[in-house]
């Protein structure tokens, strides 16, 4: 396994919420600079797996994990890993858009303010970073005249774009998305999918989705999960056209039929 080919590799990853085991012996290699979709029925552990990659599930007191996750070749459970640095490298987009209740401008810069010393970057550099990030998510034209207004007043689609934009100044390598379109209408969904398409060359993207056609449209690889286990992992085309396992076939057909 060469580190350039794979961004995220897990080995025998188990996760418990209290006594309940939500992930069982997960070993997957997720390709770099490629969109991987996590699919599976409700409650199968997609969100749990995704939230392991930036270790954000540890904020709940009852979570216990064993096994190994290496991101860009480094085990995230090593003693010397800084959570803050990990989350800088591995950005996350949530199911419900959650911009912070501050200005659009400050939302984009939030990560940078956390990660750099005060005044390490000057005003014009900041302005430029904000413009670049917002342009990258096709939001600049909509908001360039109201950068100082509150981010929570934007439409849901714009909010979700902003939530992606605020990751970019940190130069992440991996972007995790947990059903990023489930709160959006058809138009918003399409806009985010287009956006994912333009981002996938620069970032490794893992996207959880309930929407089979979305998985088919956006992803190159697909991981099918069931009851906390990975059932099948392969090229999206293969999974959809010639699934190797009975369970996968039933799920995909069930969804189509």
């Amino acid at each position: 396994m060469a580190p350039q080919t794979y961004s995220i590799c897990t080995r025998d990853l188990n996760l418990w919420y209290g006594d309940f085991q939500a992930l069982k012996k997960i070993s997957v290699d997720i390709r770099a600079s490629c969109v991987t979709a996590l699919i599976g029925p409700s409650g199968c552990g997609k969100t749990s797996l995704l939230r392991c990659f930036n270790r954000i599930n540890e904020r709940y007191g009852n979570v216990r994990t064993t096994g190994e996750i290496s991101i860009l070749g480094k085990n995230v459970y090593d003693e010397d890993v800084s959570l803050s640095e990990l989350r800088k490298t591995v950005g996350m987009v949530f199911q419900r858009p959650n911009p912070l209740p501050i200005s659009i401008y400050e939302n984009v810069l939030f990560g940078l303010r956390v990660h750099t010393r005060h005044n390490a970057i000057n005003k014009s550099q900041r302005d430029e970073l904000v413009e670049t990030a917002l342009s990258d998510v096709f939001l600049w034209q909509d908001v360039k005249d109201k950068l100082q207004s509150k981010a929570t007043l934007l439409t849901l689609e714009q909010q979700q774009k902003l939530c992606i934009a605020r990751l970019l100044p940190l130069k992440p390598r991996v972007i995790l998305m947990d059903e990023p379109c489930s709160a959006l209408d058809a138009e918003g969904t399409q806009a985010i999918e287009t956006l994912i398409d333009t981002l996938k060359e620069r970032y490794t993207i893992v996207i959880v989705t309930h929407n089979m056609s979305q998985a088919a449209r956006t992803s190159e690889e697909c991981i099918y999960m069931l009851l906390g286990e990975v059932i099948e992992h392969g090229k999206t085309k293969t999974i959809f056209l010639k699934p190797q396992r009975k369970e996968t076939e039933m799920y995909i057909e069930g969804r189509y039929g």
């Binding site: 954000i56 989350r87 990560g111």
Partner: peptide, 9 residues
């Protein structure tokens, strides 16, 4: 959660 995921302590 948003702030935590951006690396805030």
């Amino acid at each position: 959660e948003a702030a935590l995921a951006l690396g805030a302590s």
